[in-house]
Design a protein around this nucleic acid. Structure first.
Length: 278
DNA sequence: AGCTCAACCTGGCTGC
DNA sequence: TGCAGCCAGGTTGAGC
């Protein structure tokens, strides 16, 4: 799925098409996503205007008149703006109509989510799923030494492997499986190292690596891995640049040692046993 | 509180 | 060609 860069590329791609536009209709084709799509959406959304689109972690927050539409792309979701005359495709799960254009969620595996938070229930930050999220990697709170602080302080006394610590998103959000391997490679840190054993300089290198890797991925237009397409339907180009992810057995681009693959928490991790130390 | 793991669902690829 | 088995970008919630 879309990790943070793909979600951000999607946000940037759809925002100019939707900002200020009034929704005319909602069609739920298959609402059995990670959680059921709220059944009242089709009733309450029409005639409401899009005021803006923000991102928190991997959630897109679409501000409407009376609330926020939360969209998560799960593993295989894509959001695209299309002419409303375009026929629906297999695995299109929900389509939001804005007159002549549509915003469509396409999600084969149905791990995505579309939820609703009415403004009457308070600010969007209070939505339960957003509560436990760590800091944004591009916020001032993760810039420079602050980022090192966040990683260092939140990892003290944690026995969990740093790979899984990052993936959990409770310290910093948006680092998914691909960019987690890439960030640890960039920082020269072994993925199995206990998070609590990270030194302060390692935390500084890791924070800086995360910012760099995510920034480069956004600039490259998001990953093209498997079925990601951006809002215009064009594949991104980040995948060709990975230094560790999906390179099992191939020569490390720095030292030529074969890249190793291990499984941590049911997910594949790729690393260079020579460049990445505990 | 922290850790591990099953579960959600579908499609694509590998190997027999 | 057919089919079983495995793997895939995320995240929650149950059980220790």
């Amino acid at each position: 799925m879309p990790e943070l860069p793909e979600v951000e590329v999607t946000r940037l791609g759809i925002l100019p098409h939707l900002e200020g536009r009034k929704m005319s209709e909602v069609k739920v084709i298959d609402g059995r996503l990670r959680w059921p799509v709220p059944s009242n959406l089709a009733k309450i959304l029409p005639s409401q205007k899009v005021w803006g689109i923000e991102r928190r972690g991997k959630y897109l927050l679409i501000e409407m008149d009376t609330g926020y539409l939360l969209v998560h792309l799960g593993m295989t979701g894509t959001l695209r703006v299309l002419p409303s005359s375009d026929p629906l495709k297999i695995h299109d799960r929900i389509t939001f109509e804005f007159g002549k254009i549509s915003l469509r969620l396409h999600d084969p595996r149905k791990f995505g989510a579309v939820l609703w938070h009415p403004k009457s229930k308070g600010p969007i930050e209070q939505f339960p799923l957003l509560q436990k999220l760590g800091v944004e990697p591009f916020s001032p709170g993760f810039a420079g030494e602050q980022g090192a602080d966040v990683l260092y302080k939140s990892s003290r006394n944690r026995s969990i492997a740093v790979k899984q610590f990052l993936l959990a998103g409770q310290a910093v959000v948006g680092v998914g499986n691909i960019y987690c391997s890439e960030s640890l490679f960039e920082a020269g840190i072994h993925p199995a190292k206990a998070a609590g054993k990270l030194t302060r300089p390692q935390c500084a290198r890791l924070a800086s690596a995360i910012r760099l890797i995510l920034k480069k991925a956004i600039e490259a237009g998001g990953s093209s891995l498997k079925d990601f397409v951006n809002s215009e339907g064009e594949p991104g180009h980040f995948m060709v640049q990975t230094k560790a992810y999906d390179r099992k057995g191939q020569a490390c681009k720095v030292c030529k040692t074969p890249i190793k693959q291990i499984v941590q928490g049911q997910r594949s991790t790729y690393f260079c046993p020579q460049c990445q130390k505990r």
